[in-house]
Design a protein around this nucleic acid. Structure first.
Lengths: 129, 129
DNA sequence: CTATCTATGTGTCACCGACATATAGATGAA
DNA sequence: TTCATCTATATGTCGGTGACACATAGATAG
C-alpha cells in the first residue's frame, strides 16, 4: 500500500499536479466503529489498528481521540476507565446499539459512494486515448 | 438517485444519526475535467451537467465557478469569452494537456479509494448480525 | 418597464484534517 | 536519583473545503 492517508490539504499539488490524494470525508468514523465492534479497545490501540484501513503509520492521535469523544457524545460508543494493566490509565471503548446503527448507515452510504466512483471511472474509460 | 450531494457539514447528524452523507473530497474537480473533455462548455452549462455525477439539482454555482477559476490558474483548463450566442457573455472552457494528465491522476486515486472502501465493506460484512 | 432567465461572480461561516504541543503515569538505564 | 523513553490521553491552531446567501448584469418576454 502506498503512502495512503496523511499529507493532503497542505502540501497539495501546487507545483506537482499529479498528487491529488483526496479521500472520503470523515472515513475515520466508520473505521473506528468497525474496529470497536470487532474488539473493544482503547484509543492508543486504535491509532495503530487504523493502519489496516489505509491510515498512516503515524496517524495523528488528536484526530482519533477527538473522534472518539464525539462518538461518545453522540451515544454511538461508551467508555470506562481501565486501570488494570500496566502504564497510565486508559479508556476502554465499546459500541452501543446506536453505534451499530450508525455503522450500518455508513455502510449504505459507502456503497453509494462506490457506485458513484465506479460510474465515473467507466465514463472516464470511454474517452479517446 | 437519492438526494445525493448537498446538505452535510451543517445539518449533519446531531439528532438524526442515520444521515451521515459524506463523499469524496474535491470530487467536483475530476467531474468538471471529464465533462469538459467530453465537450467544451461554459460554467452555467456544467452546473446542470454535474447532476450526471450525483450532484444536486440546485448545485451551488459558486462552487463550480471557483473550481473553474482554480483549474485555470493551475493550467488544467483554458477559457475564452464567447459572445456569439444569445444572452450574456459566457466563458468557454476546454481542457489542456496538463488537465488531461490531472484527470488521469484523479482516476488512479479514485481507483485506490474504491479499493479501500470495498475492503471496508467486506470487513463489515464479516460481522455477526 | 419589470419580471424572469441566463451567466458569472463574491462573502461568509462552520467543519474537517494536518500538525504541533501539552500532560502525566510507568519503566528502565545510567 | 535522575533522566530518557514508552504508553496514553488531550488541546491549540491554521488552512482548505463545501454550504449558503447574496451581488451583478445582459437578454428576453409579457
Amino acid at each position: 500500500m502506498c503512502s495512503h492517508y496523511k499529507d493532503h490539504h497542505h502540501t497539495r499539488g501546487r507545483s506537482c499536479m499529479a498528487c491529488s490524494d483526496y479521500r472520503m470525508e470523515r472515513f475515520i468514523e466508520p473505521c473506528l466503529l468497525l474496529l470497536l465492534l470487532e474488539k473493544p479497545a482503547h484509543g492508543y490501540d486504535l491509532i495503530t489498528r487504523l493502519r489496516e484501513f489505509g491510515f498512516a503509520e503515524d496517524q495523528d492521535p488528536g484526530m482519533v481521540y477527538r473522534n472518539l469523544r464525539r462518538l461518545e457524545e453522540q451515544g454511538a460508543i461508551a467508555s470506562e476507565w481501565d486501570t488494570s494493566g500496566t502504564g497510565p490509565a486508559r479508556r476502554l471503548y465499546e459500541v452501543t446499539d446506536e453505534g451499530r446503527d450508525l455503522l450500518n448507515a455508513w455502510a449504505d452510504n459507502i456503497k453509494l459512494n462506490i457506485e458513484t466512483l465506479q460510474s465515473f471511472l467507466e465514463r472516464h474509460q470511454t474517452l479517446d486515448p
